[in-house]
Design a protein around this nucleic acid. Structure first.
Length: 500
RNA sequence: CGGGAUGUAGCACAGUCCGGUUAGUGUACCUGGUUUGGGACCAGGGGGUCGCGAGUUCGAAUCCCGCCAUCCCGACCA
């Protein structure tokens, strides 16, 4: 199979990934440059992500709302850093009408229908939301505002890749307004922890929580927090961000409130988001040469049952026996697909569901009918065993839980095995070629960071908040040292990697 | 926008250098039969503006010129 052939050559990892996305029926390139079509199976995974995250947002007191797709151009220019950060990748609406081409072929833009002010297709919604919040906020009694929006955004990237960087992508963006700096900062950190909790416990992808360097900070933010994941090819992926915006947007949009002492002050803000990029992280963190490996918590269906039979009589017998099992699994909250379609052979189905990452497969044939057994296969290890039909549902339930842990552990162990400390710049240049996370001292300046990026293509993924385990068994915390490039003092080691 | 490559059936490709029968292979699809515990087999069948346009030639998938698109590597980024 092509997947196997492609991975044997390391440099083709990106092609392997693309191939996997297409073959597993998740997504494909669309006719529109840089955009993608998310196919039903891929979207089912996204819905799983959406639902769980949405629940977590509700639990932390947030509500959903919706704001316009189009942003007047003038809004974008109100926050200086923000406009600079996004100006280069905006799609712009200039006209509102077409007319038939005078020469009779097709349609052309009607020059008479030019908009007085161009509209920007949102690359993110801070500006239009803060323009709206201005009308919602007068007093400290109106605060906090804790809104989330599920939406699509457009960023006209020069190079695109399915799920990881598409011109249009789906995401959620939370936008909150607070009366105090502390409260806003606490919110930004709280949502970072929600993201980390979700990505680690549902997607089974370990992440490093941290703070972005000034250079990597979101355009318009005072502080950007992030979660960084590591893919199987050793490259890092920013999986989510949460920003403390200070009063930048309140000042840009003139959003003031009266506090308890009747003093006017600007509102404090946060914003935070994760996108369909999470799908890319999921695929690249766990997949193997047989295809996708989905953690049970995110699989559109967790169990597939494949009957093996000769003739209608045998099929009917299996149908009857499987029926009870399906009910039992469903009552335990396990989603199951029974594929008794007779237009594909069992071998074909086995490969197909492996490619799609279905966690558990049950095969049931004449042999099993006679012995009251089934063949049980787990996707993460590809191990098969023949087990008794009795007590099967309970067995599967605990197997799914074990698999969820095992998939996480595998990713965590891999990450640890390629995480190490480096103390000299020469050593760094050698080590960065091997991929993985490198913990090194940095003097905190943008100049040094830029030099490292220039020399090695490595970026500071984050200044970590927690302790990190390295391959040699050490635990790295916030011990001070000397910058590997300049020798100047460094407060603690930061995380370097090449990134997507 | 710079560097490299590729456009031939739904998909993956050969053929192009060196122009010459009716453009081929695998896979997918349709029909019939045999099969069914790891992507079945046999027989038959359908499907092509050879990316687009212009040129050279008796003759172009093949040579020349122009354009377009896609992918990879940079710059940009969730």
């Amino acid at each position: 199979m092509a997947l196997k052939e492609l991975t044997s050559r390391e440099e083709d990892y990106s092609q392997w990934y693309n191939n996997l996305v297409v073959k597993a029926d998740l997504a494909e390139s669309s006719a529109v440059r840089g955009c993608m079509v998310i196919k039903p199976y891929g979207y089912a995974i996204w819905e799983k992500i959406q639902r769980k995250l949405d629940d977590m947002f509700k639990e932390t007191g947030h509500q959903n709302a919706y704001f316009p797709l189009f942003i007047p151009k003038s809004f974008l220019s109100k926050e200086a850093d923000h406009v600079e950060g996004f100006a280069k990748e905006c799609a712009v609406v200039t006209h509102y009408r077409l007319k038939t081409n005078p020469n009779g072929t097709g349609v052309v833009v009607d020059p008479a229908a030019k908009l007085e002010e161009e509209l920007i297709v949102r690359p993110t919604s801070e500006t239009i939301i803060w323009n709206t919040y201005k009308n919602w906020i007068n007093s400290y009694r109106d605060l906090p505002i804790l809104c989330n929006q599920w939406a699509n955004v457009v960023r006209w990237e020069m190079r695109t890749r399915l799920f990881l960087r598409t011109a249009e992508f789906l995401w959620q963006e939370g936008h909150t307004a607070h009366a105090t700096s502390d409260e806003a900062m606490e919110e930004a950190k709280r949502m970072l922890h929600v993201y980390a909790d979700f990505v680690e416990n549902y997607m089974a992808v370990p992440v490093i929580k941290g703070v972005k360097s000034a250079n990597e900070r979101f355009a318009g933010a005072v502080e950007t927090f992030c979660i960084e994941a590591l893919m199987q090819d050793g490259k890092a992926l920013q999986a989510g961000t949460s920003h403390f915006l200070g009063q930048n947007f309140a000042k840009a949009f003139d959003v003031k409130f009266s506090d308890k002492n009747n003093q006017l002050d600007y509102v404090w803000a946060t914003s935070w988001g994760v996108s369909t990029r999470l799908m890319g992280a999921l695929i690249m963190a766990h997949s193997d040469n047989n295809g996708l490996v989905l953690p049970p918590n995110l699989a559109p269906f967790q169990v597939v049952i494949v009957p093996i039979y000769k003739g209608e009589e045998q099929l009917n017998a299996i149908n009857a026996k499987v029926e009870g099992l399906i009910c039992e699994l469903k009552s335990l909250g396990i989603s199951v697909k029974y594929d008794n379609a007779d237009n594909k052979k069992p071998g074909w189905k086995f490969s197909e569901y492996e490619l799609k990452g279905v966690p558990v497969r049950i095969a049931m044939g004449q042999r099993d009918m006679e012995n009251n057994t089934v063949e049980l296969m787990r996707r993460d290890t590809l191990e098969k065993e023949t087990v008794s039909f009795d007590g099967l549902a309970a067995r599967i339930k605990s197997l799914l839980e074990e698999m969820q842990q095992n998939i996480y552990k595998k990713a965590f162990d891999y990450r640890t095995s390629v995480t190490r400390t480096v103390d000299t710049y020469d050593e760094f240049k050698v080590e960065i070629e091997k991929g993985g996370f490198i913990l090194a001292h940095w003097d905190g300046t943008t100049e040094t960071e830029e030099k490292i990026k220039e020399d090695t293509k490595a970026t500071i993924r984050c200044i970590p908040m927690d302790e990190i385990h390295t391959a040699d068994g050490h635990v790295i915390g916030n011990e001070p040292g000397k910058c590997m490039v300049t020798g100047r003092p460094s407060a603690r080691r930061v995380v370097f990697a090449r990134a997507y």
